[in-house]
């Protein structure tokens, strides 16, 4: 096969899975990250403790180990799932733990005077969070969230190791059938780069747009 045919073949088979895994896992990570990050700031010690365990376990062990554990060990306890579900769950849980730290430190770095202003204007705690703190914290978090999205996208290549047919998996299959090793893995690197690079640029642009004139 020619170089372009190889690329076309990989894209045709694996691109959708790679992108779908990225999007689903990113949404899960963002939701988990916000929920866990806010819970970590709770007044309730027990809630803080529970979240700390989640965060430390998923940050302290390796993503690939988590992926294998969810895919190979959970079925032993009667919990079976498709490779896709396992992939989204593992990546989402893993990045959710990191995101929660981003969320927590983002919220904590909002100027304390903002809290005083909302007390003086008689906001409730929920109103304060929703209207004043989170919108400002989000802008502070954006660069970190952007970096995490790129890292998450790159990490989806691991799902090939639990037989999910993403770009990397397809490359391995092609490699086994055509033996055009050099072209295949070069093409694979280029494909990832061509997706990740605009993502990096896009996040930077979004960042600039959101801070324009305001901060």
């Amino acid at each position: 096969m020619s170089f372009w045919e190889l690329i076309a073949s990989m894209l045709g088979q694996g691109l959708v899975i790679t992108l779908l895994t990225t999007v689903l896992a990113a949404v899960l990570a963002l939701v988990l990250g916000f929920v866990a990050g806010l819970m970590r700031l709770s007044k309730n010690k027990f809630i803080r403790f529970l979240v700390a365990i989640y965060v430390e376990v998923f940050r302290g062990t390796s993503l690939l180990v988590q992926l294998f554990w969810i895919y190979f060990v959970l079925p032993m306890f009667g919990i079976t799932m498709t490779a896709m579900t396992a992939a989204v769950l593992a990546i989402g849980l893993n990045f959710g733990a990191y995101t929660s730290e981003v969320v927590r430190s983002g919220i904590q770095s909002v100027d304390k005077g903002q809290i005083e202003a909302t007390i003086a204007l008689n906001f409730t705690r929920v109103q304060r969070m929703r209207r004043i703190i989170i919108p400002q914290a989000f802008i502070i978090m954006l660069p970190n969230l952007g970096n995490q999205l790129i890292e998450l996208f790159k990490s989806t290549s691991l799902v090939a190791l639990i037989t999910l047919t993403d770009l990397t998996y397809q490359a391995n299959v092609l490699n086994a059938t055509t033996l055009q090793t050099t072209q295949i893995f070069t093409a694979l690197l280029v494909i990832y780069f061509v997706i990740a690079w605009p993502m990096t640029k896009g996040m930077k642009l979004l960042e600039r747009k959101m801070t324009e004139g305001r901060m």
Binding site: D111, E116, L121, R131, I132, Q136, M215
Partner: peptide, 28 residues
């Protein structure tokens, strides 16, 4: 019944001037 003006203003930086002013009446 109480309001306050701070030494360091503490305006909401993510809102325009008008939004700063209507925020509390509308939300609170």
């Amino acid at each position: 019944n109480i309001g306050m003006v701070f030494q360091h203003f503490h305006l909401f930086p993510h809102m325009t001037v008008l939004e700063n002013i209507i925020e509390a009446p509308v939300t609170v």
